[in-house]
Amino acid sequence: MSTTALTDTHHHDPMGAKIGMWLFLLTEFLLFGGLFLVYAQYRTQYAADFHYAAMSLDVLIGAFNTLVLLTSSLTMALAIAALERGSRRVSAVLLVVTVGFGVFFLVNKYFEWSAKFHHGLYPGSEELAGRTSGEAVFYGLYFAMTGLHAVHVIVGIAILAAVLGIVARRPRIKVRVDDIRASGVSLTGSDGQALWQRELAEAPEAVELALVYPENAEVRHRQVILMENCGLYWHLVDVIWIFLFPLFYLIS
């Protein structure tokens, strides 16, 4: 019987993955940075109007959403810490909680925006056309910046939900073997001990094997890296909100 040694040939580069993620995050920072630049310019130009317009923003809802996002960042960090320690179930639960906070944030945002629309405050509305240009600019920036932020929250939720699907299951690896000419398949441990063996009715052209890993530190490490990178995106959303909140809600 001929034997074929199988090794996990997937390419793993944690450092490269992290650098790639950070480069992407930096472009996100600069994207919002550009909007903050526009905000800073108009705020100096229309200081009084910004001051007046911000009075109709609900500080309580803004503060509450700050609380929600900060706490979601905590549960995200804890979810990663739990996976690093091998507590897969705790990690999955914390991820679900994080997603829950994200959805809760969006629900609050929905009610907040609905109230604004109800008062005729939305980009291009007649109500805003009748107000000073400073107020119109304030609301334009408010909807553009918190809107873009909300889009990021939605994307973040989708990413975390996908990660949850991966982390909740035990790691597995699929291997395709093309050159089987033997009448049987056997699995031998690295110490040479026979683990599993099976006779085949006829020699197949190719065999696909799905191997479920035991809780192995190295395999878990890969999932931690994946989750860390997704977590970074979630924290980015938090960092941006940390700046949005005082600059829009607290200037009245």
């Binding site: 960042s73 905590l74 960090a77 860390e228 977590g231 924290h235 960092v239 940390i242 909140f245 005082p246």
Partner: peptide
């Protein structure tokens, strides 16, 4: 204050 909060998140939460 926002800068301090942002730095905290970047340094600790974002590792």
């Amino acid at each position: 204050i926002a800068a301090i909060k942002g730095t905290l998140v970047l340094m600790i939460f974002m590792n």
